[in-house]
Structures are given as structure tokens and as C-alpha cells.
Amino acid sequence: MDERPASPTLTILASLAFVFLLAPVVIVLPLSFSGDAFMAFPPQSWSARWYAAIFSHARLIEAFFVSLGLAATVTALSLMIALPATYALVRLRPPGAEAMFSLFTAPLLLPTIVLGLAILIVFAGLGLLGTWRGLLLAHLVVCTPYALRVLATSLANLPADVEQAAATLGARPATVFRRVTLPLMLPGVAATGALCFLVSFDETVLSLFMTGPRISTLPVEMFHHVESRADPLVAAVSVLLVGFTLLVVVLVDRSLGLGKAFLKGG
């Protein structure tokens, strides 16, 4: 289909809406180079002092590494939990597979403020509040549904006859999975990993309930900082964070690109 020229009215309305949509993300970049002690826009002076300030802010740095380790662990565990579940629900199809799929993706339907409170109450009794294990479990319950969804789509899109061909050639089910199914799911697994990583790294509300003086994550620290004071520090952190997210996305896109190359036409 040819591109139809949008009417001037639509173009103007859409442009204004785009400005509105992107303004809060875009404004952070110039703000991060502010030389002022307090937040003002446009800044009175320019400098890189707030970038320097990040590195002397021990709690932020510590929280960054907690978030990084947490996201990596959550990603690995989500894959290890969701991959077998996906295979069971999509390929083995036990009775009630669809209901179970809905059940295991249901945590996404619950508002995180409600889920966070529910977990807070239970974890308080278990002594898991303010612990790394508690954070890990809370993040797992929101990451596994995403993993299950993306992996299930990826597996369901694999033509079953390629796996059947392997069986006719003498491969046992475990061998079929290892030699055929898993390699073909690799792009889906990479996308799932990236998604879980970003969801965990970005997760704020659940973490607010789980963190405490002993342990905190980067989004929680940023939240508390913005809540208590208005200075350009968070702008500098945000710019680095956006860059980091971009890096993850590009890395996955690269690996997916490779994946697509050998999937094409297959």
C-alpha cells in the first residue's frame, strides 16, 4: 500500500502530541549538564558536576550493583523456570494447559501496588523483607509470566514437523529438544532474557515494598531521591540509565538479527 499524505491538521496534532510524549525524556539530557545546585530549567550554568556526583554517592552505586546482580539472577532463574513450563504447556499439553497458562501469567494482571502489599505481608512473617532473597522472589513472580508468554509464542511458532522429522530420524524426545527445539528457540530465549532483565532492572513498586535500610535497588534509590530533593543528580543517572537500556536493546537486536539469518526460509 502506498503512503497516503496525512492532512495538515493531522500532521500538526500528531506533532504536538509527539512533543508532549517525548518532552519529559528529552528534557533530562540538557538538565543532566546543569551546573546549578538545584533543579531549574533552563539551567543557569552548565557543567558535568552531577555526573561526577554520582560516583561519590555510595548508596546509588551500591544500589546499581544490587539491581544489576538482581536482574541477571532473575533473568537466569526466570528462563530456567519458564522454559520447562513452556515446553510442558505448549508441547505436552496436559489437561487444563490453557487454564494453567492463564494462571501462571495472572500476576501481570494484578496491580503491583496490590501485589507488593500482598507479598510484603507474607514476607514480613517469613523474615524475607529487606533481604536479597525476598527481592529475588518478588521479581521472579513478575518476570516469569513475561518469560512464559514470550517463550510460548516462540515455541508455538516453531513448526512441529521439524521436531517430528527429528523423531522419525531416531531422536528421542530429550535429544529432539536439545538438538532441534532449543536451538530454534534461541532468538525467543534471547528476547525473553532481555525482557526479564529490563523488567527486573526497572521494577520500582514491588521493590519499594521489599527494600529497606540494608538493601536497595537503583530505581528505589532514585525514587527516594526525587521524593526528598529536587536537584539534577537524577537527570545524570537517568541519562546513563537510558544509555544502558539502549545498550541492552541493541545487543539483543544484534543476537536476534543473527538468529533471524538462519531461521529465514526454514
Binding site: 519529559p24 528534557i27 533530562v28 532514585m222 537517568s238
Partner: peptide, 19 residues
């Protein structure tokens, strides 16, 4: 893909008294 904290912070920069 951008944290809600970051985007809200951006709004503070736009809407605050010195924004």
C-alpha cells in the same frame, strides 16, 4: 523502556516552579 521514575522526574523539570 524508560523508568517511570525518570519520566516523572522529567515532568518535574518541566512543571516545577523553576521549570
Amino acid at each position: 523502556l524508560t523508568s517511570a521514575v525518570v519520566r516523572t522526574y522529567g515532568w518535574i523539570a518541566i512543571l516545577s516552579d523553576g521549570g
